[in-house]
């Protein structure tokens, strides 16, 4: 079974890379966007609204080979919808990403309850292709659509006491049925230092592959910090809180010997139960010889983020 050359992969990626031309041509022919969507065999593809006309492309990750839409939207860790990778795609339909409110609180001048539409409207959406490295030693390449976290946060005017930014996922057992189970301490919490949050790489994401986020990928608003392990990229955010002290993020609270606050991708610091030296590239290689790659420090984003950690012992502060 050769994953990389399945029909789906080739089709979706080729169409995707050529999408603007294709849309223009389709429109000219009077066929419209519907045809473009019809080319995809995945139903989820049609769920999301198009963002292509609202976003600008950037140079981030232009050279990387994308994972397919199918891979990105059917292989997820989102324990609010089940612990298996396939669960979220099956179960996340109960999430209602519209309307959506984000509560901003803590050490900032503009606290308040913001409607997501108003929250995102002032900013130019950007498409950025980032590598994604899961703490479970697999990786993908994903074309996110979002706004730089820094510009969104500055609007709230954090005070000098705002040393950390803390994000919370929705807590709602009807919409997120697995929150009935004690798998994790709900709601999911993640945090960044203010310097990390203000780093140009940090992205508040509302879409992928030019569409609004599918539920299983953390609709309607999630964080993406590509130099950290996947679990830092908190999904379905309802709260942003500025505070002076470091928060206890969910996985750290769950097993502090295994998951730290920083969770920077680092091949030299193994997870106590498995090695982080290499990663399996989802969709890469063949069945009997899956493609592996040596994991890079900061997931290869050292130029952009290494300065954040000068003088910090990365082994102790994993």
């Amino acid at each position: 079974m050769m994953k990389k050359i399945t029909e789906y992969f080739v089709t979706s990626e080729a169409h995707y890379l050529n999408r603007r031309n294709f849309i223009k041509q389709s429109a000219r022919l009077g066929v419209g966007l519907a045809t473009f969507r019809a080319f995809s065999s995945s139903a989820e593809w049609m769920q999301g609204g198009g963002l292509s006309d609202k976003m600008i492309s950037t140079d981030y990750g232009k050279e990387l080979a994308l994972n397919s839409f199918k891979e990105i939207t059917n292989y997820n860790n989102f324990y609010e919808f089940g612990t298996s990778k396939r669960n979220p795609a099956k179960n996340a339909h109960t999430l209602k990403p519209k309307p959506w409110h984000v509560k901003v609180s803590g050490e900032c001048l503009k606290q308040g309850d913001y409607d997501l539409e108003d929250f995102i409207a002032p900013y130019q959406l950007e498409e950025r292709i980032y590598r994604f490295r899961c703490v479970e030693a697999w990786s993908m390449v994903i074309p996110w659509v979002g706004v730089p976290l820094a510009s969104a946060l500055k609007i709230f005017q954090p005070t000098s006491k705002a040393k950390y930014v803390v994000f919370k996922t929705l807590l709602d057992k009807t919409q997120m049925p697995w929150q009935n189970r004690p798998t994790l301490d709900w709601p999911y919490i993640e945090g960044l230092t203010i310097a990390e949050a203000m780093n140009p790489l940090s992205l508040l994401v509302v879409g992928l592959y030019g569409k609004t986020l599918p539920n299983q990928n953390g609709a309607p608003l999630r964080l993406v910090v590509p130099w950290k392990y996947g679990f830092k990229n908190i999904k379905s955010i309802v709260s942003i809180h500025f505070q002076e002290t470091a928060p206890l993020n969910t996985w750290q609270g769950q097993a502090s010997s295994e998951y730290g606050f920083y969770a920077n991708v680092n091949p030299a610091v193994d997870h106590p139960r498995w090695s982080q030296a290499r990663e399996r590239i989802i969709g890469g290689g063949s069945f009997f010889s899956p493609e592996k790659r040596k994991t890079k420090l900061f997931n290869g984003y050292g130029n952009e983020v290494a300065h954040l950690y000068t003088g910090l012992d990365l082994v102790k502060n994993f």
Partner: peptide, 16 residues
């Protein structure tokens, strides 16, 4: 599933 290409990450989806 494997032959039909339904698996996204055959390693994990067969190991488990």
């Amino acid at each position: 599933d494997a032959l039909l290409g339904n698996l996204i990450d055959p390693i994990e989806e067969i190991t488990n």
